[in-house]
Every structure is written in C-alpha cells, then in structure tokens.
C-alpha cells in the first residue's frame, strides 16, 4: 500500500482546496455583484479551466511557472523555489482545476441571497469585508460548503495537469491518481483496486464530514 501517495493526495487536495476557498469565495462574491454583462463575462472566464483539457491546462501552467518562464525563473533565482516536479506544483494544478467548481457553486449561492440583507448591513455602518463575513458567507453557507466539497473532490482527483507540471516523483508528486494510473498501466490490478478503494473511502469520509457540518448550521459571526 502506497501510504505516501495517500498522504500526498490528501495534503495536495486539502492545500489546494484551502487556496480555492481563500481566493474563490471572495471572487465568487465579487462576480455575483458585478453588473449584468460583466458578470456573465467574468463567469465565463472563471469557467475556462473547467472546460479545457487538463493537458492544455498543464501546458499553460508550464508556460506560466516553468523554470524558463518569467515567473518561474524569478522564483528560482530569488528563493531557489520551483513549482515544477514539486508537490507545490501539484497543489497549483489542483488549485487551478478546482477553483471554477468552487466559484460557480458559491457564486450561485451568493446570487440567491436577497440584496436587502447586504444593504441593511451597510446602513448599519458595516464595511464590505464585514458584510462579506457576517452576512454574505453565513447566508450562502450551504453553497460554500457544497463548493468546498466539489473543489476538494476535483483537487484530489486531479491527474492530467499534475502529471505535466509535477511529473511522477515517488513520495513527492506521485499522488493516488497517478499511482493508480501507474498500477493499471503495469498490470498490477489488485494494487490498483486497493488504491482506488482507499481513495474513494477517504474522499467519501471527508465529503460526509462536510455534509454533516452543513447540517449542523450556519456560522453566526457578528
């Protein structure tokens, strides 16, 4: 049993989901409040990584942060850091593919919240950040959790773009999906089965936990 791969998958999935939440929830709120026309345009842009083949996405990522790219070479010169062949590269790939799932789901949640709540908060002296935390997020809470669950599922399952940017390095970038692919490829059917089942159960467990959290109620930040 490749425990490294499971640990890595969860590590990559959770980190990428955390970034998706931090970036995606405010982004969703911003898009939800854009004027019609702009809103559709922004929604479509966010959707792009969802409809592109993972390999194309991996190619773009390599272009963007590869070691010869502007960003990549700057990072490497300054910090000796590189996304390529590193678990952070897998996080980057998983983040990019999971972000649209989170944004779309949460955006729909925000759009269904009556604007009057937000306006009431404004007349009561609250700024945008405060309204976001105390009104928008709690009132769209179920959508936020659903978005988190979807994003996590997508992040854990990410394969194509990860393989391109992070490669297949045992213990470093060989996630469960890649380990399963390799096991199938080399005819190690029973190992593939065990890996697939483990990944399914681990992901299912997390999704159930999220579902229970949603049932438990809405945060009442004030």
């Amino acid at each position: 049993m490749d425990w490294d791969a499971l640990r890595l998958s969860l590590q990559v999935g959770l980190t990428a989901t955390a970034f998706s939440v931090v970036v995606g929830v405010p982004l969703a709120w911003w898009i939800a409040r854009l004027r019609p026309g702009w809103r559709e345009t922004a929604s479509a842009l966010v959707l792009v990584p969802m409809v592109l083949p993972p390999t194309v996405l991996g190619y773009y990522l390599l272009q963007a942060v590869g070691r010869r790219s502007f960003i990549g070479s700057a990072l490497e010169d300054a910090f000796g850091f590189s996304f390529v062949f590193d678990w952070t590269g897998a996080v980057l790939a998983a983040f990019v593919v999971s972000l649209p799932f989170l944004v779309r789901t949460v955006q729909a949640g925000f759009e269904s919240v009556d604007r009057a709540y937000e306006e009431a908060a404004r007349t009561l002296g609250r700024g945008e950040l405060s309204i976001f935390m105390t009104v928008a997020v709690p009132l769209a809470w179920r959508s936020v959790l659903a978005g988190v669950a979807l994003a996590f599922g997508r992040a854990v399952g990410e394969f194509g773009a990860t393989l391109m940017i992070a490669g297949n390095v045992p213990g470093r970038t060989r996630t469960m999906s890649i380990a399963i692919y390799e096991a199938v490829q080399t005819g190690r059917a029973s190992e593939a089965q065990i890996l697939a089942l483990t990944l399914t159960l681990a992901t299912l467990g997390l999704l159930i936990a999220v579902g229970l959290a949603a049932r438990k109620g809405v945060p009442s930040w004030r």
């Binding site: 390599l62 010869r68 393989l163 490669g167 297949n168 390095v169 970038t173």
Partner: peptide
C-alpha cells in the same frame, strides 16, 4: 533530483522546455 516522465517523449519535452 530524479523525476519520472510517462515516456521518453515526455522526458525529452521536460528537457527541451528547460524544466529538467
């Protein structure tokens, strides 16, 4: 420092793009 490509074609692509 070893990284795996799925095939020699991908290995060559890694080097050609300067990532390896």
């Amino acid at each position: 420092k070893i990284v795996y490509g799925e095939s020699v074609a991908q290995v060559l692509q890694f080097v050609r793009t300067g990532n390896a």
